[in-house]
């Protein structure tokens, strides 16, 4: 996020360049290429379980994890930060400070082209799932406080990174809850209690693109089943609800989560 302000500066510079350039448009003979030509970018987040688009609060259990456990989804909220578009020329463009997505609220995951990015070739897109240590500071984000997004101080404080909740059919064929909540990992061992930052930053595979003369749209897709496999299959009977204070569960989410997002550039 530290690059956020730098990005703002770049964006402002682009905007200024474009608006200055607009003053010349009546001079048709003088075809001037803008110094920093840019295009608007739309951003959408989609959410799948396997091939199925997630529908909240279904009465049945329509989704299946890698262990064959059937489940539904009643809530999915998550936070990603440092979403960065990497240009091959070395310039990085950071999108918003953070995205706090609640899939029950389309205004939190669907943004038309209000952001501008420079034309050029991009090698890829990276993001941080959750907040890194610098950004994961208790209480400093008002909108997240209002959303009860804080991570309790007994298990490390800061903020939640994800709340993925629903019901599954357990090993006794009974309906049971799961609440995949992710945040700082608390470790208790013989040396005492420590808190481990539990975010991860990844470059999304195959996320390179070129911005030419057309506006673009970035469509991020989270496949929630990827939280529950690759490399380790997640068993709701073991890690159903109440995993926030569970160090192993928190670390396993970090291990499994690296491939949750794909991106399509349109």
């Amino acid at each position: 996020m530290k690059t956020f302000f730098k990005t703002m500066f770049i964006t402002a510079t682009i905007g200024l360049a474009v608006s200055l350039n607009a003053c010349d448009t009546d001079d048709d003979d003088d075809i001037t290429t803008p110094v920093f030509p840019s295009q608007s970018v739309g951003i959408n987040f989609m959410h799948l379980s396997g091939a199925d688009t997630i529908e909240l609060n279904t009465s049945n259990r329509p989704y299946t994890n890698a262990l064959g456990q059937q489940y539904n989804v009643t809530k999915l909220r998550y936070l990603i930060s440092n979403v960065t578009l990497h240009q091959v020329n070395g310039v990085n463009i950071e999108l918003d400070e953070y995205f706090f997505v609640d899939i029950s609220k389309p205004e939190t995951f669907s943004f038309t082209g209000s952001r501008m990015i420079p034309q050029g070739t991009y090698s890829g897109i990276s993001y941080t799932f959750g907040f890194d240590e610098n950004d994961n500071t208790d209480g400093i984000y008002t909108d997240l406080n209002v959303a009860n997004w804080n991570w309790p101080s007994p298990i490390g404080g800061g903020y939640h990174f994800m709340q993925l909740e629903g019901r599954y059919i357990d090993s006794n064929s009974a309906d049971q809850f799961f609440a995949t909540h992710m945040g700082t990992a608390r470790k208790i061992d013989s040396t005492g209690t420590t808190f481990e930052a539990n975010h991860f930053t990844v470059m999304i595979p195959n996320s390179g693109f070129v911005v030419g003369n057309n506006n673009i749209e970035l469509e991020f897709t989270m496949n929630i089943n990827e939280w529950y496999t690759n490399p380790v299959n997640w068993d709701f009977n073991v890690y159903g609800a109440g995993i926030m204070p569970n160090y192993n569960a928190q670390k396993l989410l970090n291990t499994n989560g690296k491939d949750i997002f794909t991106v399509r550039i349109k």
């Binding site: 208790d138 209480g139 406080n145 209002v146 959303a147 009860n148 804080n150 309790p152 101080s153 007994p154 298990i155 109440g242 926030m244 204070p245």
Partner: peptide, 25 residues
């Protein structure tokens, strides 16, 4: 501390905590 602890009260998921002075979500 009981209120805030996910292993004890776990009241915060619905009622917030010290950063949500309205004590409701």
């Amino acid at each position: 501390e009981v209120f805030d602890d996910p292993d004890r009260g776990d009241c915060g998921h619905c009622h917030g905590g010290q950063y949500n002075p309205n004590w409701t979500d």
